[in-house]
Write a protein that binds this DNA or RNA. Sequence first.
DNA 1: GCCGTTTTCGGCCCGACTGTTTTCAGTCG
Length: 589
Amino acid sequence: MPESDRVTRMENSEIAAALLEIGELLEIAGESVFRVGAYERAAITIRSLSRDLGDIYDEGSLKALQSIGGIGKSTAEKIEEMLTTGRCGYLEELRQSLPASLVTMIQIPGVGPKKIKLFYDELGIESIDQLEEAAKTGGLRELKGMSAKSEENILKGIAAYHEHHERILLSDAYPLAAKIVGELRRHPALEQADMAGSLRRFRETIGDIDVLASSAAPEEVMDAFESLPQVAEVIARGATKSSVRTRAGLQVDLRVVAPHEYGAALQYFTGSKAHNIHLRELARKHDLKISEYGVFQMPAEKRIAGATEEEVYATLGLPLIPAVLREDTGEIEAAAEGRLPKLLGVDDICGDLHVHTNWSDAMPTIEQVAEAAIELGYAYVAISDHAFKLPVAGGLTPQQLEEQMDAIAAANEKYPEITILAGSEVNIDNDGNVDFDEELLARLDVVAASVHAGFGQDRAQITARTIGAIENPHVEIICHPTGRILGKRDPFAIDLDAVFKAAAEHNTALELNSFPDRLDLKDDYLREAKRAGVKIAINTDAHHAEQLRFVEYGVVTAQRGWLEAEDVINTYPLEKLRGWLGRGSTPSL
DNA sequence: GCCGTTTTCGGCCCGACTGTTTTCAGTCG
């Protein structure tokens, strides 16, 4: 296919969005929940693909599309239409019968497809603003099943939507959740408490915080929970469950169960939804029923497990599946076949290969970086400041880089307990070349290269640039390969498949940037990279000494990508790392 | 709409809470 056509071709994210919208419109129209769910599942699957649907289609046409799990004939045909024409006739038809703006109302807490349909049919309401107006003027209470109370709740839901309809970063949610769990654990009536939900799975963004507790006195625990200083409002309260909204606008759900049910509840409450559905389907085939209360032998409903998660999985003949893997992307099959990965941990990390100092745009001195790295128990840390073609970040000139190498040599004298590596984060220009001449690059311990400009370039160009850097024998790591910033900037249109292939061939590592709003490469892509034989470097890109601790977010993301220690070059001891870098064992002084 | 070690048709995970319901629908996770 000529490049000019390729540029206009719909991308995975656009196709996924179209399928999701189809599902949402069908849901509002009152279609079967299974049909709706099929579109939703297809959209989720497509979002997690690292390969472009266009490439898959070019290679194997409709049949290749259908070989993707959850995509059948009908969806494959719609994808084909979108790829070849850039349009989806079925979606356009649906938009004729129902206004597309209705789908945004699904995001209002407490408002679902049935009510949206009701408001549209009876009152012609098509937008959140119109709904708000109707609720304020008492226009909804006349409708069947509605009252003044319902209007009040809808207004609350709209306020919550405006305040907080985007997911928040893992790094924002985690400390808050840890504090809440910590406070609950101090309560005398409490037996156990843990985070659950997407937070326990360490997803990169979090919709709400789920907390699970066990106690013989649930009322007391829920009272204590609702009295926490962070709580602004109690949304719902039942016998076992309490939902609150924090002052920051975040919803926190607490579920309190009996101690003997804790494992089943933790399993259920951790999710993901798709993992649980798959697990429960599997259970049914074994004449078992899994719920948050336990595992039951059917049809007698005899309870056979539930105190621990291990027990729950064991009833299906499975080992405990780590929470980070529970996304129904093959972990249940892998567990059954005894091939779950041996996930790496923070303790496996021996050093950080991408840290900035006050020589360029960051705060800490070389010495402060060294001390922070020593505190983390690292064997090495690489100073990789910006290079001169990025003047906005105070990039180092060749002269300054040489001076910095001397300063690093001096710091190595001062801190014998750690090896400070001389590195650089060079810029990949439009032709795939990088800063500094070969002689200078060769004298460094490690060179990392990044795309820092031209994010909007087309796929061919941005891919070619990156591959140019991968092929450069002096470049060992490609930093933040997709350039995304969560909530701010989309990934650029890079062909990761081609990048993985080149990186594997030239033995160039790709970075997992641990900055909480980057996490780039992301989990799904890490897994694809591993399959392609690519090595990963889990770096922080720290600009403050404290940010070296962001490595924890990188490690959990790596776990979600099924990575093992051997896949990650900075789990290697110094000599092995030097061997991999191919720069010999003589420090560059 | 998808899918198949009971099926190419007939299923599709399971339960809590709210509000307005006198037995349940809608929403949520």
